[in-house]
Amino acid sequence: MATGGRRGAAAAPLLVAVAALLLGAAGHLYPGEVCPGMDIRNNLTRLHELENCSVIEGHLQILLMFKTRPEDFRDLSFPKLIMITDYLLLFRVYGLESLKDLFPNLTVIRGSRLFFNYALVIFEMVHLKELGLYNLMNITRGSVRIEKNNELCYLATIDWSRILDSVEDNYIVLNKDDNEECGDICPGTAKGKTNCPATVINGQFVERCWTHSHCQKVCPTICKSHGCTAEGLCCHSECLGNCSQPDDPTKCVACRNFYLDGRCVETCPPPYYHFQDWRCVNFSFCQDLHHKCKNSRRQGCHQYVIHNNKCIPECPSGYTMNSSNLLCTPCLGPCPKVCHLLEGEKTIDSVTSAQELRGCTVINGSLIINIRGGNNLAAELEANLGLIEEISGYLKIRRSYALVSLSFFRKLRLIRGETLEIGNYSFYALDNQNLRQLWDWSKHNLTITQGKLFFHYNPKLCLSEIHKMEEVSGTKGRQERNDIALKTNGDQASCENELLKFSYIRTSFDKI
């Protein structure tokens, strides 16, 4: 039985969820670079991206490699990797027998973001014989899940209580170790020597080791999670996991709180800001991140802002960003909400898709409305799209047979046209069989910064309504002859009103 693990408890099935942008060198404390989270699957090609990484700022997932063999891993080693800020997950990587050479110096898994409450997941690794993470000293947050690894031993010899604050939620089941077939031998045991430290858990006094050649490092209890030197002297209180010299914040392997210019500090002093819960960055760093993602459509890219001495992905609820200094300031009234469309555009074809934009005031991208039916549609669209004030790209209304009016965009005031449909149009209306009105132009103002209007096959939309939009939106004169079809717009509506004058002759039985 794995020490510190839980057996036999019912657990939810383990679901495996399925960018080499360097964020800056980590400095003297770390020998390499800070790398983003990685999802490495199918083959070993991307694994080489770990070569210079000291910190993975995010998670590391290595999974679904069915053609790899043990010899493929023999020359692979990433000794610079010290810390993973989120979680480490391995799933069905064939041929991998140990992690001792792959990650010989991995010391800390912070667990800032977890995989279903777990910071370390080893699942269905069919050839893994031992973990071998002999320098792993601290899992700051989260638990361990090690399950269905039929060859995995050296679990009962690990004292997880020396690595985690609590072992109650560890789930370590259905491994070879369960069948008591392992016969784990710690260093020196074969020669009758006791080389590794022994600890007591559940009444068992057991030597602690990761492999037959690597003991588990056990520091004096007084050192807590700070770690200790090879001689057993406690590291500085700002260290986490390990250090090369005692009581020196510049000799830590990793930091308990924050890293700044080669030393570990309790908090980031001005003019620095907390970033990702582990390091200090200056304003320029946060500003660069903001600008890199301002026009990016890459998933996970955030326009970072500053709030409460932190550089964070977005302002919290009730705050909006001051564009001059990136500071989050309290909103006066309802907060603006910028919604970034991942692929640059979004099609609204149902109430469900409209709900995804609920509360958005600025759309960074283009909207395509293609709704053919739905219950209580006008009210639903207004509830979900009615706060949109600005669209950076274009607005396209296409084959939306259920629409009679666009009044559900009740606050839309600006279409920038930074991206144009077919390279020309910022407003595009095609084949809307029941569209009769755009907006009530006596109450609604709309500016279209650039781009043209396109109207074709809107049989109940009168040309007068379209011409009014040209005047109000500032697009009059931009359109070419064929942009607004004269014969297919309003051709099934009563669009022309003329005053009919009647004269009559009164007659009676005795007068003409």
Rank of each mutant, 00 (worst) to 15 (best):
T329P: 03
V305D: 02
P330F: 05
C239R: 00
V108R: 11
G183Q: 07
Y87G: 00
Y30S: 15
V144P: 03
N150D: 08
M83E: 10
P36I: 15
Y134F: 04
G111F: 03
E314K: 07
R263M: 07
M137A: 11
A119G: 14
R141E: 05
G241C: 04
N117Y: 08
N257P: 00
R141Y: 06
N195T: 14
G37T: 10
N195C: 13
I201C: 04
I146M: 07
F283M: 09
D277A: 14
R263I: 11
V144Q: 01
C215D: 03
R145T: 02
Y87D: 00
F258I: 03
E49F: 06
Q61V: 06
S77Y: 12
T157A: 09
D177W: 06
D248W: 06
E180P: 08
P31I: 12
Y259C: 08
P70I: 06
L50S: 02
W160T: 00
V218H: 09
G262A: 10
Q303P: 10
H214I: 08
P187S: 10
P31V: 13
H302M: 10
K80E: 06
P313Y: 08
T320R: 10
T107K: 06
A254V: 12
S323G: 14
I84T: 00
D178L: 08
V144Y: 01
D86H: 15
R145M: 03
H302A: 13
M65Y: 05
N179R: 14
D248N: 05
C182V: 01
I158A: 02
V108F: 03
C280L: 00
L106N: 02
F66K: 02
F116M: 03
R162K: 15
C335A: 09
T329N: 08
S112F: 13
S317E: 04
T189Y: 05
S98R: 06
D72V: 15
S143R: 10
T68Q: 15
C255M: 01
Y94L: 15
C35N: 00
P220M: 03
T189E: 09
D101G: 14
V265N: 04
N242T: 12
H214W: 07
T85N: 04
R145C: 03
R141P: 00
L99V: 10
N117R: 04
N295L: 09
S166F: 10
L174T: 15
Q245K: 12
S237R: 11
V200F: 09
E49G: 06
V265H: 04
K176D: 03
N295G: 14
I146A: 04
T329Q: 13
T320I: 07
M125V: 04
T267F: 15
T85C: 11
K224V: 12
N105V: 11
I40W: 13
N282Q: 04
K217N: 13
D184N: 11
H59M: 12
G300V: 09
L289P: 03
D288R: 13
I82T: 14
D288S: 10
Q299R: 05
R141F: 03
E130Y: 14
D165E: 11
R113I: 09
L136F: 11
K67E: 14
D165T: 04
S77F: 15
R69E: 06
M321Y: 04
E207S: 09
Y319P: 01
P270G: 10
Q245E: 13
I84C: 01
E207W: 15
D184T: 04
G183I: 15
T189A: 08
C328A: 00
E314R: 04
S166R: 07
P70F: 06
H59A: 10
I62S: 00
G183L: 12
V305P: 04
D169H: 11
E33I: 06
C243T: 00
H59W: 07
K67P: 05
A156T: 05
R69A: 11
Q204N: 13
D247T: 07
Y273E: 14
T250I: 09
N325V: 07
S284W: 12
I158V: 07
D277I: 05
L289D: 08
D277H: 14
D184H: 11
C182Q: 01
G188E: 05
F116Q: 02
I139D: 00
N175H: 04
T211N: 03
M65E: 07
L136C: 03
I306G: 14
L90H: 00
G32R: 12
V305I: 10
S77V: 09
L102H: 01
Q216K: 01
I122A: 11
P334D: 11
L96C: 04
G203S: 10
C280Y: 00
L88V: 07
K217V: 07
L50T: 05
H48K: 12
M321R: 09
E314A: 13
G227I: 02
S213Q: 07
A198H: 06
S77A: 03
H226R: 10
I201L: 11
D248P: 01
T157K: 06
T157F: 01
V253M: 07
I146W: 00
A156W: 12
F78S: 03
L99P: 01
Q299H: 11
Y259R: 08
L114M: 15
E168A: 10
D39C: 06
T329W: 08
T85D: 03
K176V: 02
L240T: 07
F73R: 01
D247H: 03
V305S: 06
C255H: 00
L128T: 03
C234K: 01
L326S: 07
F258P: 01
T107I: 15
I122Q: 01
N42Q: 05
T107R: 02
Q204L: 10
Y304Q: 09
P270T: 08
Y259I: 13
E124C: 03
D39M: 08
G111A: 04
M38F: 03
L64Q: 02
A254T: 15
P187A: 12
C215A: 02
C293F: 15
L60F: 04
I201E: 02
I201D: 04
R41M: 14
L120R: 01
R263N: 15
A254S: 11
P313K: 08
P246R: 13
P79T: 09
K224W: 03
N309C: 06
T320C: 08
E97V: 14
G32I: 15
L326V: 15
Q61S: 10
I163W: 01
C268G: 00
L289Y: 14
C53R: 00
N170K: 06
V34M: 14
C209R: 01
I158P: 01
I163F: 11
C228K: 01
H28F: 10
H28Q: 06
T250K: 09
F275G: 02
P197R: 11
G192W: 05
C335I: 03
N195M: 09
P249A: 11
E207Q: 09
I163D: 00
L44N: 10
R162C: 07
L44F: 12
N43L: 07
T189Q: 13
L88Q: 01
F73K: 13
Y94N: 10
A254D: 03
S54L: 08
